[in-house]
Design a protein around this nucleic acid. Structure first.
Lengths: 145, 145
DNA sequence: TTCTCAAATAATAACACTTTTCATGTAATA
DNA sequence: TATTACATGAAAAGTGTTATTATTTGAGAA
């Protein structure tokens, strides 16, 4: 999708950054692997097909950059590394994840019933909530068989 | 609380482990600092008053052990280290945390309105939920002034 | 197009947190 | 007592990540 790169270019320009092949390639990899929740090392491996010269540090830097401009989201699945997903749902809250403790699969949940809980918390604790992260651990349908 | 150490001793015995001064001291520190969410280094510093000879590796090992026997819970507050809290609520789900992005304070929330969300997810995804982790990021009442 | 310079890069060193290794110590068991 | 298994401290190694540095690159100016 060319439109995607236009968005990237635009957001980079806003903050005085440049659109480089590395940045383009990394965003592409994350975009093409939606639902996969790749970690930095995996992204590094995949992006090398496109940019064989790329360094791991650049991957780390770029993912941070892409997170800053809200094109990707960093996930913490408690497996010792950061994972990333393409951020399709711009403004609103993130979706949630079901993490299967048997096969390790990660399923995305689109329901969001946390609004009422949030408003209750905001009232009770006078805490301004800006974001929430919800993880469910359990066993997926396949592994229950 | 002596009862606490009895529980520890019992659970250790179940799995063939021993109750050592180090293990007793570490559990005590976490117990005495409920609401503080200490990290390993902080626990190490505090436990040295009781056990000056203790090594950092033992603290890591013991916290893992205490987590396995569900006497403490490991928290991930996205600040680059593991934090621990005493696990008072045995069987049921954990409570939630409000993390202030200004002062870094962590506030505990006891409300749990996730039951309905969970049953909906279980039905829809046939995913057996065993635990959930919820973090809210925002600004606490003090920092909003 | 060529020049200029800030920004971006690759490579590598440094870093922080954590785990493992290993030799020694200690407590329960036979 | 001898044996066995577990626990420990110290140090080394491992892991994911960030910082440093010299070099290269891209985009606007000449």
């Amino acid at each position: 999708m060319d439109n995607l790169m236009d968005v990237l270019k635009e957001r980079l320009k806003e903050k005085g950054f440049k659109l480089t092949p590395q940045r383009r390639a990394i965003l592409n990899i994350v975009f093409e692997n939606q639902g996969k929740h790749l970690n930095t090392e995996e992204i590094y491996g995949l992006v090398k097909d496109e940019c064989p010269e790329i360094g791991l540090a650049t991957v780390y830097r770029t993912l941070q950059l892409l997170e800053d401009m809200e094109l990707v989201s960093r996930l913490n699945l408690d497996d010792g590394c950061s994972r990333y997903e393409f951020n399709s749902h711009e403004d609103d809250h993130q979706h949630h994840h079901l993490i299967c403790e048997v096969c390790g699969d990660v399923i995305e949940v689109e329901i969001d019933l946390l609004e009422q809980l949030e408003s209750e918390i905001e009232k009770l604790y006078k805490f301004k909530i800006k974001d929430h992260k919800v993880k469910f651990n359990g066993v997926c349908s396949d592994c229950r068989k």
